Simulated scan of single mutants.
Amino acid sequence: MDKKLLTEEVIDQLVADIKKHNENERLQMIDWLMANQLTKDKKTIALIESWEDNQSSLKRRIYWYFQGRLRWTGQPQPNSEELLNKIESKIEKEKPEVQWAMNFTTGWIGVYEKKYRNRCIALGEKTGLYKGKMVSKGCTPEYLPEFIVIESNKRKL
């Protein structure tokens, strides 16, 4: 894939094609597209950053997953408080595929930015997202109170 040819129109067609797949495949493909193609060029990163309120839930997922991945890969951002305000007001009304990415972003903010840790844990307790969800051995639960404690302890943060 030539990232220089990835215009908004081409991405819209890719998203439309991806939507035709079952949920599991759809989410794997959209996450792969974001991580391996869209984040490799400043032009497509600018597009991602404009998708927070896009009508496409898959584009909104990309926006939020990108925000979380920045933090997960050790690139703290200055807009964490603003993002948390938006997540707190929107997460419970969002589609599940977007909720997951918002939860992911909240988790990594809570891990790396100690000043927001209690707020992120409280959000997880309030929403209850992924509470009690079974995970494979060696994997970290997605429930924010558990995720943040485990991941911040691993990093001694």
Score class of each variant (00 low, 15 high):
N85I: 12
S50I: 01
G68L: 03
S136I: 06
V15K: 03
I48P: 01
L129S: 00
L123C: 00
A35M: 10
Q13D: 13
R119Q: 11
W100Q: 05
K93S: 15
K86G: 10
E81D: 08
N22L: 06
R155E: 10
Q37A: 13
N79Q: 11
E25M: 05
Q75R: 13
R71K: 09
G128L: 02
L123I: 03
L47K: 10
V15C: 03
Q13G: 08
L58C: 02
Q99D: 12
T44V: 13
S152D: 04
C120L: 03
V10R: 14
Q67E: 11
Y63G: 02
K59G: 05
L144G: 02
S152G: 04
Q28E: 12
Q77G: 03
D2C: 05
Q77H: 04
R119S: 07
D41F: 08
R155Y: 06
E113M: 09
K90Q: 13
N22V: 12
L38T: 05
A46C: 09
W64I: 06
T73K: 14
E113K: 07
M34N: 10
K115A: 07
Q55S: 15
G124D: 01
N118H: 14
E125L: 02
V98P: 02
F147S: 08
Q28W: 11
L84H: 05
T105S: 11
D31M: 12
N118S: 13
E82P: 02
S50H: 07
I45E: 12
I18T: 08
K90T: 13
S89T: 14
I48T: 08
L123D: 04
V10H: 13
D2E: 15
T140F: 08
S89K: 15
P76E: 08
I121D: 00
T7K: 05
T127S: 12
T7E: 07
T106Y: 01
A46P: 04
E82F: 10
L33T: 04
L38R: 00
R69G: 10
L27S: 04
Y130D: 09
N85A: 15
T106D: 00
K3H: 09
A46R: 12
P141K: 00
E9K: 15
F104R: 01
E88L: 01
T127C: 14
